[in-house]
Simulated scan of single mutants.
Amino acid sequence: MNIKQSNIANLPTKYGQFKIKAYKDLDSNQEHLAIITHNFEQIDSPYVRIHSECLTGDTLGSLKCDCQNQLQLAMTFIAKEGGLIIYHRQEGRNIGLLNKVNAYALQDKGRNTIEANLELGFKEDERDYSIIEYIFKDLNVKKIKLITNNPKKIEFVQSIGIEITQRVPSITKANKYNEFYLNTKKSKMGHLL
């Protein structure tokens, strides 16, 4: 991998005090973030959330998903307990924002998220997690308490030799706009909801 890194900067947030570091994959031109508590390096097995970018949810507050709620839950929890949030910037399971909006339009016609991606010519999930391994190595992470419902993230973390000492569920309240989405994640993608 050909990676460029930023310096570490302070990031005061409404959730608490963090530090932030950016990583740019020069091959894909994608930029990712490590959001770290000040005591991160002193924790033997820190809490970690690998959060997949969702502009519509994280920033615009879309009710079609649970992304913003999961991110806020992780920020609040990790600010208190100590750890790391990796903001994995591969929008729409790495199909990009334009295609994600096209997938939304197909979902408006009754497709689930998987069917929409497939109809647009993509796999159900196009994400590449290799930058996560790079970030873990850069931050000297060996074992973690992983905050996730996604079995693919669990498998990936284990496959790169990181010990998961605990899996912490990231459960948020469903609403009438995201029930179908959450059911698809559970029944078709094996999410631990």
Rank of each mutant, 00 (worst) to 15 (best):
residue 153 K to H: 04
residue 145 K to N: 12
residue 109 K to M: 13
residue 176 K to I: 02
residue 121 G to I: 08
residue 163 E to F: 09
residue 156 F to A: 06
residue 118 L to R: 12
residue 180 F to L: 11
residue 142 K to I: 04
residue 127 R to G: 04
residue 153 K to Y: 05
residue 110 G to V: 03
residue 108 D to M: 06
residue 173 K to H: 03
residue 164 I to P: 11
residue 148 T to C: 09
residue 98 L to V: 15
residue 120 L to Y: 09
residue 98 L to E: 13
residue 136 F to H: 05
residue 167 R to Y: 09
residue 140 N to A: 14
residue 150 N to W: 07
residue 155 E to R: 12
residue 161 G to Y: 09
residue 109 K to P: 02
residue 116 A to T: 10
residue 184 T to H: 09
residue 97 L to N: 10
residue 175 N to R: 04
residue 103 A to N: 07
residue 122 F to S: 06
residue 153 K to N: 05
residue 154 I to R: 05
residue 119 E to D: 14
residue 106 L to M: 14
residue 136 F to V: 05
residue 130 S to G: 03
residue 134 Y to G: 05
residue 128 D to S: 02
residue 162 I to H: 10
residue 151 P to A: 07
residue 129 Y to S: 02
residue 171 I to Q: 13
residue 176 K to T: 08
residue 103 A to K: 10
residue 119 E to Y: 14
residue 135 I to C: 05
residue 184 T to G: 06
residue 116 A to C: 11
residue 155 E to N: 15
residue 98 L to S: 13
residue 130 S to L: 09
residue 144 I to N: 01
residue 167 R to L: 15
residue 136 F to D: 04
residue 135 I to W: 06
residue 184 T to L: 05
residue 114 I to C: 04
residue 117 N to C: 12
residue 174 A to Q: 05
residue 158 Q to K: 15
residue 96 G to W: 09
residue 105 A to D: 14
residue 123 K to C: 01
residue 112 N to M: 04
residue 177 Y to P: 01
